[in-house]
């Protein structure tokens, strides 16, 4: 049944009928599994990957290292929640190593991102320090290579 989700993860537009054909799992079971997964947030949402550069959209992304003082009883979770509730924070991860939380932030310009860090993130009580890395170029994301990859042509007729 995991195969159903692998297919959807790759291409959310696959219909239950197509998935049933591809996997040999009966259509009714595929539908049921998807419905259930949508209900219990196994499937969080269906989204489209867009290369905004191509549309000429200015977006500024930054990866922010956040050093945090963990709190009694709740550890890192409470502060992580404080941070991930901001819509500017696109992802929040707890990491091992020299800092604790990795936060990716998106804004329409550098000032906006900087403001978020200095006004919202850094002043939080348990945040001990931040390091902001602005993203310069995206090569590959979510397994997809960005930009047009030139594919060599195959010989169209080959017995």
């Amino acid at each position: 049944m995991k195969e159903v989700f692998r297919i959807l993860e790759k291409d959310a537009r696959r219909t239950p009928q197509q998935i049933a054909t591809m996997t040999g799992i009966p259509l009714a079971e595929v539908k049921k599994a998807i419905k259930k997964a949508e209900g219990d947030r196994t499937i969080l949402k269906y989204k489209t990957m867009v290369d905004w550069d191509k549309l000429g959209e200015e977006q500024v992304w930054a990866l922010i290292e956040v050093k945090v003082l963990p709190q009694r009883d709740v550890g890192f979770d409470a502060i992580a929640e404080r941070i991930y509730r901001f819509p500017e924070a696109r992802s929040v991860y707890l990491l091992s190593g020299t800092y604790d939380l990795a936060v990716t932030v998106v804004g329409s310009n550098m000032r906006e991102v900087a403001a978020f860090v200095s006004e919202k993130l850094a002043p939080l009580e348990s945040v001990q320090g931040t390091v902001t890395h602005f993203l310069l170029k995206r090569y590959k994301e979510d397994g997809e290579i960005l930009g047009v990859e030139e594919r060599p042509k195959r010989v169209p007729i080959m017995p």
């Binding site: 594919r151 060599p152 195959r154 010989v155 169209p156 007729i157 080959m158 017995p159």
Partner: peptide, 11 residues
Amino acid sequence: ISLGVGEPDFV
């Protein structure tokens, strides 16, 4: 559209 190829479409 060619279904006449005789090799993988993967590189």
